[in-house]
């Protein structure tokens, strides 16, 4: 029984991998199996969402119980989750389809998300000010590169003459480095995926 518990997931993983690869490399044998398996994963993930919701509720109910200055945030999270779920369900039951959920998404969630994202500009400036200090040759090169590329973006003279240097930076050294990183990353992704498909990386069940 213990052996079955150990080997069954590995056999399922290996068979699934073979099916997906056979689907990718052949036509007319098991067409659409890969797509069907991906759909299964989405369906399982949808069901598991309930488990995630239970976890969120449990964590924040515990925080409410513990008290403290931050419990107001836990309360806000629980109340807003409840309101969104109830509004969505009642909206559908009343024949409004998704219009209630869409309204919440468009007029409450999206402005909040946009505001949060816009903070990145200020955080970037603060991080850059902290980092871009000339301490050695490497940091000096970094600062020079950053200044040239930044000034090169300015359309009017006298900085417009820097735009060709800025473009050269982006077209050759930067692009070359990015491609090198992408090749290395792709190899890493292939290695990780194959380790899982071969059952070598099985730290979720060892």
């Amino acid at each position: 029984m213990q052996r079955l518990k150990l080997y069954l997931p590995l056999i399922v993983v290996l068979l699934t991998a073979l099916l997906v690869l056979a689907d990718f490399f052949t036509t007319g044998l098991i067409d659409g199996v890969g797509h069907a398996l991906a759909l299964w994963v989405s369906m399982i993930a949808g069901v598991l969402l309930l488990l995630g919701l239970a976890n969120i509720a449990w964590v924040h109910l515990q925080r409410l119980q513990k008290g403290g200055a931050n419990r107001v945030y836990s309360l806000a999270l629980l109340v807003s989750a409840f309101v969104v779920i109830v509004a969505g369900v009642i909206g559908r039951a009343a024949g409004y389809q998704d219009s209630v959920s869409n309204w919440i998404f468009q007029y409450i969630y999206q402005p909040l998300a946009t505001t949060l994202f816009s903070l990145l500009a200020f955080l970037l400036i603060s991080a850059a000010l902290r980092t871009l200090r000339i301490r050695n040759i490497e940091s000096a090169l970094l600062v020079i590169g950053a200044v040239v590329v930044l000034l090169g973006q300015i359309a009017f003279t006298p900085f417009s003459s820097l735009s060709s240097i800025s473009q050269w930076f982006q077209d050759y050294p930067v692009l070359g480095i990015i491609r090198g990183i992408l090749i290395g990353t792709a190899l890493g992704a292939i290695a990780t995926s194959l380790r899982y498909l071969l059952g070598v990386d099985n730290n979720y069940m060892r």
Binding site: V41, I44, A45, L48, L49, L51, G52, N55, N203, Y204, M205, R206
Partner: peptide, 14 residues
């Protein structure tokens, strides 16, 4: 992600 949430729990428990 729910799948990552469950897998992370399993990995840590093991």
């Amino acid at each position: 992600d729910t799948l990552t949430f469950l897998a992370a729990g399993d990995v840590t428990e093991v």
